[in-house]
Design a protein around this nucleic acid. Structure first.
Lengths: 163, 163
DNA sequence: ATATATTGTTAGGCAAGTCTAACAATATCC
DNA sequence: GGATATTGTTAGACTTGCCTAACAATATAT
């Protein structure tokens, strides 16, 4: 079973997978730029990840993820995507902030909470209330600080419902 | 202006404020138990926080937050509460997991996202849809994996709405 | 093909935060 | 009030992850 990685090592794995995804050849320089660290930091991280069998890397050569490394990277990326999706879609946060928060929180959130966040996004997107659907009502609330008329109107209409 | 604290130092501030809140006399031992670290770690953290003017602590004496320290601690605690509230109320997460996640995320989340999470909880609680209100619908979705009838029914009813 | 620029590595230092072991102060208990 | 238990501190080691400086390999360019 894959050993638990630190936030830092997860960042390296994620960066490698993302660069690979973009079709670029993965090199130390690139990683260092993406993660905003100096090259020696990358070298030493790669050494560590190699020893753990997550990365293949001969000195001065290209950098690849092993199968295991790829799995670990995809796990992190999955968390990242779920979070940034939640922030932008459900909370209507700007893309930059959504990304930044996802980058931090992806390393610490529990599987359960992540799953529920995902479900919440799904629910909000799926539950159709026409013009008065969730995101619109929520945005109205964000902008005006009070509930939209639809919500208030509904009170009387649902008074006959039991409990 | 209060200097940015590390996650670790924020934990110490938070722990001190919480112990104080419980009416207990704050001592090194207590903090070490709450935070699951050994006593020397506490001593050295207190030294650091004292130097920064956030904590008052004479050797072998009691531990107090300065005004500035109290402000910093309350800030952290505010973040913590907002998060654990969101997890339990909005996502229906069990209290333990909600706490654990709040403890981690409180150190890294952006002010904007925190504000929006809070607003989401407010909205969910405030927007009254009677029996078919948000949390109930959401819980139904969590349990059954599909939308409750109310949601589906609404589709046709709202078809006349423009856009 | 040789000089130059770029990229990568090694070596070693530093800061944060933890720990253990040893010692010091305080509290407790006859 | 002196022995013992508890609590707190100091000293020093260790880990993680970053850095700079110096050196080595590779790529580029004339």
């Amino acid at each position: 079973m894959a050993k638990e990685q630190t936030a830092s090592m997860e960042d390296y794995l994620e960066a490698i997978a993302n660069l690979r995804e973009e079709g670029k050849v993965v090199r130390v320089k690139q990683i260092s730029q993406v993660l905003n660290v100096k090259m020696p930091s990358v070298t030493s991280a790669l050494k560590k990840l190699s020893e753990e069998g997550l990365v293949r890397h001969e000195p001065y050569g290209y950098i690849e993820l092993t199968l295991q490394g790829d799995k670990a990277a995809n796990d992190v990326i999955g968390r990242h995507k779920a979070l940034s999706c939640f922030f932008s879609q459900a909370l209507d946060i700007d893309p930059l902030t959504a990304e930044e928060d996802a980058c931090k929180i992806e390393h610490v959130i529990s599987p359960l909470s992540l799953e529920r966040l995902t479900k919440l996004v799904e629910f909000i997107q799926a539950c159709p209330l026409g013009e008065a659907n969730f995101p619109k009502r929520y945005k109205y609330y964000l902008e005006h600080g009070e509930l939209p008329e639809e919500c208030l109107l509904t009170i009387s209409k649902t008074k006959q419902s039991s409990e």
